[in-house]
């Protein structure tokens, strides 16, 4: 076997080994890598009760209720199967609006309402001019 061939084999082995290790590691850690849980996961008990988590979903249209003269807001967060009511007080990102995907950080209270202390907007991967968006019957809601 020539030295060159040995080097090729060594490199192939390194790559295969590292890829296998990474695949195993990532599979094992998979649930920790999730940036947020969905309402279905939260309600099905996949998440330890009262644990601080991030919850992701779409803001249900017509569900946003603001308290006048304060930053208090509450809205429904849905993944199209289950819905969780979210309470929040504070500044919202520019992109927060009904139908928008968002990620809220906080924990589920005893009254089954999710108390959020931070709300992030998650935008979708579609880009188009406003005139065009207005002509579409409805911009497709991409699941977060």
């Amino acid at each position: 076997m020539t030295p060159r061939r040995q080097r090729i084999i060594a490199i192939t082995l390194i790559l295969a080994g590292v890829s296998a290790a990474a695949a195993l590691g990532l599979t094992a850690l998979s649930s920790n890598i999730l940036f947020f849980y969905t309402p279905t996961q939260l309600l099905s008990g996949e998440v330890p009760p009262a644990a601080a988590i991030r919850l992701g979903g779409l803001v249900t249209k017509g569900s946003v209720k603001r308290t006048p003269d304060s930053l208090k807001i509450s809205f429904d967060l849905t993944d199209q199967q289950h819905t969780v009511r979210v309470r929040y007080e504070g500044l919202l990102p520019d992109l927060f609006r009904e139908g928008q995907g968002i990620v809220a950080q906080g924990r589920l209270a005893a009254d089954r309402v999710f108390n959020a202390n931070e709300v992030l907007a998650k935008h979708d991967e579609n880009y188009m001019p406003p005139e065009l968006a207005a002509h579409l019957p409805k911009v497709k809601d991409t699941a977060p």
């Binding site: 990532l26 940036f35 947020f36 992030l120 998650k122 979708d124 991967e125 991409t142």
Partner: peptide
Amino acid sequence: EWWHTLHQAPTVTR
């Protein structure tokens, strides 16, 4: 695509 992320999915290379 593998995990829930705040970053959105690819736009051009999908």
